[in-house]
Computed example of a mutant assay.
Amino acid sequence: MSALIIDDIAVSRGAGPVIQGVSFRLEQGRVTALVGPNGAGKTSLLDGISGVAPISAGTIRIDGTPIEKLSRVARAKQGIVHIEQGRAVFPSLTVRENLSLTARTPAEIDAALARFPELEKRIDAPTALLSGGEQQMVVLARAFAARPRFLLIDEMSLGLAPVVFMRLLPIVSEIAEQGVGVLLVEQFTHLALGLAEEALVVASGQVSFQGPAATLREDASLLHRAYLGGAAA
């Protein structure tokens, strides 16, 4: 299995670094939860990995090949798909047209729709007419149709009713089971940790914990210290 290797990277915005000295491996076929307090730098870390924002130090490699100097488009061609905050659909396009933006064949559209049967009856509807939950399904289906090697998901639950989010969450595990490495940023910490095999806690721009997600699930005091920046990485 391939791995996305993050080594000592820094991401700067404005006056200085938002992320500094972060290192970890994202393995294909596994979910890693990236959690931490608001403003800790989680979104900036994802932006640096996918190429939305430049990194100011460190390296990013896939199987030993450096990609940190590649554009966002070139990184996507290497298999990094980034679902950013908010439901980034093209509202004037139909569901089918949205999926066609990433799918290379009709079979890939069919495979994506098989995971989201709710979308099949809306396949020719403009996505502007879909509910928030349906739009998030389109975003996930479009990402799946791109056949990613590594999928970065930033706050999938934002603006969704809990019942809708709980419908979508198991699909993240199913995507990982297909051999995709998933890095999941989520405000519902315990749900993310319950889904993931590995966990990273970022506090004040640095990793305060790195290890099995089960360790944090079973030790609330360790999770609390990590959020405050006091746990060992």
Rank of each mutant, 00 (worst) to 15 (best):
L93K: 11
L183F: 06
E177A: 14
S12N: 08
L129Q: 14
A10Y: 09
L46M: 12
R142P: 02
A192W: 09
A112S: 06
I60A: 11
Q136Y: 06
N38M: 05
M137K: 06
A112N: 07
V139N: 05
L45D: 03
L152Q: 02
D7W: 01
S208Q: 12
V73Q: 13
I62W: 09
A88R: 15
L183V: 00
V172K: 02
I109E: 12
P66M: 05
H82S: 03
V138T: 07
A192G: 13
S208H: 10
T189M: 12
V81W: 07
P54T: 04
T189A: 15
V139Q: 10
G133N: 04
G29W: 01
P54V: 05
R142V: 10
S23L: 07
R72I: 15
L101P: 02
A231S: 14
P126N: 11
H224S: 15
K121H: 13
T65I: 12
V81D: 05
V207P: 00
I19C: 08
A10M: 00
I175L: 11
S208G: 10
L169R: 05
T94C: 04
V52H: 10
F150M: 08
T59R: 15
V81I: 15
E120D: 12
P17H: 05
A146T: 01
I55F: 08
V201M: 09
E197Q: 15
A161T: 04
I49V: 11
Q210L: 13
L191N: 11
D7C: 06
D219P: 02
V18L: 14
V180Q: 05
E27V: 10
R147C: 06
L152Y: 01
L70T: 02
L223G: 09
D47S: 14
L130G: 01
R217V: 11
R13A: 13
I83A: 05
S2A: 11
R217K: 13
T215N: 13
Q210G: 13
G229T: 11
S44Q: 10
S100H: 10
V163L: 09
L26Q: 08
D154S: 06
R72F: 00
Q210T: 09
G230D: 14
I109S: 03
G133A: 04
L99R: 04
L184V: 03
P106I: 02
G48F: 09
G58L: 07
S23C: 10
H224L: 13
S131R: 11
A128P: 03
P212Q: 14
L223A: 13
A3D: 12
E218Q: 15
A176L: 02
A57V: 06
L152S: 03
D7Q: 14
G39E: 07
I153D: 01
V138K: 04
A143H: 08
D219T: 05
S173G: 13
V202S: 08
A213P: 04
S221F: 01
Q206W: 00
L152V: 04
G229L: 12
S204E: 13
A103G: 01
H190P: 00
